[in-house]
Design a protein around this nucleic acid. Structure first.
Length: 421
RNA sequence: CGGAGAGUAGUAUAAUGGUAGUAUAUAUGCUUUGGGAGCAUACGGUCCGAGUUCGAUUCUCGGCUCUCCGACCA
C-alpha cells in the first residue's frame, strides 16, 4: 500500500477531551473515527487490524468445531418477549416501525435468535452436539460508554453457541472452548497479561469464566493468583476470597478489561423456546447450551492499551495492519525504494507455483513529508518492522523493530530472511 | 441514572458585551530531506434555540453533544 494514497492522515494532536489511550492513539493514527460516543468507523488501517483479529478468532472457533453463520441484527419483539427480556434488558435498543405498530430490537446478543433457529435442525440426539458462531456488530444501549473501544454502543463481537445432549458433554466442550480462548489471546499478543477469571455464574452455574487483560484502563477489579495465573472477579469476592485452583489467600488486586466470557447457559434458553431433542429411547429432553463471547473491537482497544509507548502504538505482528513500514528518504532514492517495495510485496508470489501472499508493506512514498514526519508517523502507526532507504544506507537497508531501539543495516538477502522467518 | 467538566477554523488552542488571534492542516510558489523543516501568499471558525442588550461568541435560561467519576452491566 502506498502511503501517499492512503485514505487517512495522521493527526498531531489527540482529540479534545479524549483520555483513553486506545482512543487517542487509534484516532490520531487513523485507525478509527468517532461518529458518536461509543460508535466508531473503522478506517483502512483499523479494518486491516480488525480482519486479522477476526481471522485468528475464526480459525480457533473452526478448530473446535464451530460453524460460521450470520444472524440478523434486526430482530422482532416476540423473541425477546419469549424470554422476558424485552422489558428487563436495559441495554436493548428498541424501536417501532414508522409504517406499522411492529416493534423491533437491535441485537445485543443472540440467544433469542439462535435458540428458536436451532429448533429447525436439532430434533434428535444424533444432531448433537453442534456448535455455531458468528462475527458481527452488536448494539447495546449502554448507560455510559467509555474508554474508546473498550465500551461502546456498537461493537464487533464473536458469539459462539454450543448445543449438547447433557451437562457432561457441555462441561467437556466448555474446557475446549476455554483452551481456544487462550489460543486467541496468545495469538493476539496479549496472552501474558490475560487471566482466566472466575466470575458470577448467574442462577444456573456457580461460576462463569471471564478472560481479563490487566490494564489500568480496565473497569473490572480482579484478584490475581500469580501461582495459578487465574483471577477472581470482585463481583464474587465476598463469597470467594481465595484462589479457586490452589486455595492461595494472597491474591493481588488488579484492574482488568474483560476481553472474553464463556458461560454455561444450560437450559436457560432451551426452556422458553422449547428446544428439545429425542434421546436414544425416544424420550424428549431439553437441549443443554453454552455461550462464548469475544468482543473484537474491545480486544483491539485492549491490545493498544497493553502495547504502546509515548510515541504511539506497538502492534503485535499477528494483528498489525502491515508487517513492514518502508520509509523512503530523499527523492534520489525513490527508484531503489520502489524496487524494494515491489520485491517485498510480491515476494514468493510466482515462484514455482508456490502460493505465498507476499509481505504486507506500507510504503511511505510521500514526496512532501519530511524525514521527521515520516518517522513520527511510523512510530505512531506502530507497524512491527521499519525499513529505511536513504543517502546513508548505501546499497543496504536499515531495519528497526518498533519495540526495539536499535536499527541496523542489512542487505536484501538478509532482510528477506528476517522478514520471512 | 446521579455527579462534575467542556463545546471557538479540518485538528488543537487564545481572547473579547462592539473588526475573533495563534499553531497545525489544506492550496500555490521557491528552498529543504535522518526525528513532526523554512519563507511568502491564500483559504477557513464562535453547537442549536430563546431571553437580556443599541449590539451576545462572551451574560441568563433551555436543549443537544462530548469527556471524566460513580452506580449499573452475560
Amino acid at each position: 500500500m502506498l502511503q501517499s494514497q492512503l485514505f487517512t492522515k495522521t493527526k498531531k494532536e489527540a482529540p479534545k477531551g479524549e483520555e483513553a489511550v486506545n482512543a487517542q492513539l487509534l484516532i490520531r493514527a487513523g485507525f478509527i473515527d468517532k461518529l458518536i460516543a461509543g460508535v466508531y468507523t473503522f478506517l483502512p488501517l483499523g479494518m486491516r487490524v480488525m480482519k486479522k483479529i477476526e481471522n485468528i478468532i475464526r480459525e480457533e472457533m473452526v478448530n473446535i468445531g464451530g460453524q460460521e453463520i450470520l444472524m440478523p441484527v434486526l430482530q422482532p419483539k416476540l423473541n425477546w418477549e419469549t424470554t422476558g427480556r424485552w422489558g428487563t434488558y436495559d441495554a436493548l435498543f428498541r424501536f417501532t416501525s414508522h409504517y406499522s405498530e411492529n416493534e423491533y430490537a437491535l441485537g445485543p446478543t443472540h440467544e433469542e435468535i439462535i435458540s428458536p433457529l436451532a429448533k429447525n435442525f436439532i430434533l434428535s440426539y444424533k444432531d448433537l452436539p453442534v456448535y455455531v458462531f458468528q462475527i458481527q456488530n452488536k448494539f447495546r444501549d449502554e448507560k455510559r460508554v467509555k474508554s474508546g473501544l473498550l465500551r461502546g454502543r456498537e461493537f464487533f463481537m464473536k458469539d459462539l453457541y454450543s448445543f449438547h445432549a447433557d451437562e457432561k458433554d457441555l462441561d467437556e466442550y466448555y474446557e475446549k472452548a476455554k483452551q481456544a480462548y487462550f489460543n486467541v489471546f496468545n495469538r493476539a499478543g496479549i496472552g501474558d497479561s490475560t487471566f482466566l477469571t472466575f466470575a458470577s455464574g448467574g442462577s444456573f452455574s456457580k461460576y462463569s469464566h471471564e478472560f481479563q487483560t490487566l490494564s489500568e484502563a480496565g473497569e473490572d477489579k480482579i484478584y490475581v493468583c500469580e501461582k495459578c495465573r487465574v483471577a477472581v472477579n470482585k463481583e464474587i469476592i465476598e463469597e470467594q476470597s481465595v484462589c479457586p485452583e490452589c486455595g492461595n489467600k494472597n491474591l493481588k488486586e488488579e484492574k482488568g478489561i474483560e476481553v472474553g466470557n464463556i458461560f454455561k447457559l444450560k437450559t436457560k434458553y432451551s426452556t422458553p423456546f422449547n428446544l428439545k431433542y429425542k434421546d436414544e429411547k425416544g424420550v424428549e429432553k431439553e437441549v443443554v447450551m453454552g455461550c462464548y463471547g469475544i468482543g473484537l473491537s474491545r480486544l483491539m482497544g485492549s491490545i493498544v492499551e497493553v502495547g504502546h509507548d509515548e510515541k504511539g502504538i506497538i502492534w503485535p505482528e499477528s494483528v498489525a495492519p502491515f508487517k513492514v513500514h518502508l520509509i523512503c528518504l530523499g527523492e534520489k532514492n525513490k527508484a531503489k525504494c520502489d524496487k524494494l517495495y515491489k520485491t517485498l510485496s510480491t515476494y514468493g508470489r510466482s515462484t514455482e507455483g508456490r502460493q505465498k501472499a507476499g509481505i504486507e508493506v506500507l510504503y511511505d512514498d510521500r514526496k512532501e513529508a519530511s524525514a521527521g514526519e515520516k518517522f513520527a508517523d511510523a512510530d505512531l502507526i506502530g507497524i512491527p518492522y521499519r525499513l529505511v532507504i536513504s543517502e546513508k544506507t548505501g546499497g543496504k537497508v536499515e531495519i528497526k523493530k518498533r519495540n526495539e531501539g536499535k536499527a541496523r543495516l542489512v542487505d536484501e538477502g538478509e532482510l528477506l530472511n528476517l522478514l520471512i522467518n
